[in-house]
């Protein structure tokens, strides 16, 4: 009998290792899943390679002085980087001026003040707002915000396309994102902290502002950074309401037409066929894309670092 040859315990390690076929299948599946996960690295590399290659081709093709001229007019070989960066900063600033009070206010109310039932109705509505595509907000900014809000209330005589309307539109787009991240981080603050404050006789307002808010600060700052990064990268609102025609003079006036990095890319993409004479114009798209990629990447990394450094473990 086979049993008689076995060691006293009756089992050896090979008996416990399972059938070879199952183990082979298991390691095959594990390797397949690893391969799929590694694709994300390939995608990142592709992004970087496709941006950097042509961005340097572009820098070789143009006169470097044209990167610091009076405006962004690819067809006239004027690629003033200041114009598009300034336009992006103006739009982002206006967007954050809208999204910070609206987003944080809504987040604080939902997290600290709203009764559970109200919260269950309001939160999905905010999520619906977050689901509205940017093209819809772009049309809204062009047809409503530009004439009815910017022209009427903010500027006396705004141009038809203006950075102000684009900034407001982007702000509306970013608000639910800021609200949702900030609300999550405030709800993650343990109840015992609030109870401790109430026990000492603190009011709701001081508990919220002096206990919950500081405890959730890492998430709140992260919400604002992610929001700003999203605002910088937002394309369609700007392309429709800010500077649809492609070129623009250097301007930081929110009442006037301007051009952002994303808007410039979109304008080049749709006008691409008409600028056959200038290869540099098409390649400038990659250069601006690289700039945009690096800016948002820096913001995202800074946001991640900040969260890790400040986050408190409860």
């Amino acid at each position: 009998m086979a049993q008689a040859e076995r060691p006293p315990s009756g089992l050896s390690l090979t008996d416990l290792a399972g059938s070879p076929a199952r183990r082979r299948k298991e390691s095959l599946v594990a390797r397949a899943f690893f391969g799929i996960a590694a694709v994300s690295i390939v995608i990142s590399l592709l992004i970087v390679v496709s941006l950097i290659g042509k961005a340097f081709t572009f820098l070789g093709q143009v006169d470097l002085a044209s990167l610091w001229s009076e405006g962004w007019f690819p067809r006239r070989s004027l690629f003033d980087v200041r114009t598009v960066v300034a336009g992006t900063l103006v739009v982002t600033l206006i967007a954050m001026l809208v999204a910070t009070p609206l987003g944080l206010g809504a987040a604080i109310y939902l997290s600290e003040y709203a009764k559970p039932r109200l919260r269950r109705t309001l939160k999905p509505i905010l999520e619906i707002l977050a689901g509205i595509p940017s093209i819809v907000l772009g049309v809204f900014a062009l047809n409503f915000l530009n004439p009815e809000v910017v022209d009427r209330f903010l500027c006396g005589d705004a141009s038809f396309f203006n950075l102000g309307g684009a900034g407001l539109g982007v702000g509306v787009l970013v608000t639910p994102l800021v609200a949702s991240i900030a609300e999550d981080s405030m709800r993650a603050v343990p109840m015992s902290l609030r109870e401790g404050a109430f026990g000492l006789g603190a009011r709701k307002r001081s508990t919220t502002l002096n206990v919950v808010f500081p405890a959730a600060i890492s998430g709140i700052v992260a919400a604002l950074i992610v929001g700003a990064s999203r605002a910088i990268g937002e394309t369609m609102v700007v392309a429709l309401a800010g500077g649809a025609t492609g070129g623009a003079l250097f301007s930081i006036d929110h009442c006037q037409q301007g051009q952002t990095m994303t808007g410039a890319i979109a304008a080049l993409a749709i006008g691409g066929d008409q600028v056959k004479g200038s290869v540099a114009a098409v390649n400038s798209l990659f250069f601006v894309g690289l700039l945009l990629f690096l800016m948002t990447l820096a913001l995202n990394i800074a946001g991640g670092r900040f969260v890790r450094r400040v986050r408190q473990k409860y």
Binding site: I47, V226, G289
Partner: peptide, 25 residues
């Protein structure tokens, strides 16, 4: 950890940059 951080950063890349990737690739 590299893969994890990489995916989080990819999620923050503006959509128009993915368009450039699509155009190039």
């Amino acid at each position: 950890r590299i893969i994890d951080v990489n995916i989080r950063n990819l999620a923050g890349v503006p959509s128009v940059v993915y368009g450039i990737l699509g155009l190039a690739v």
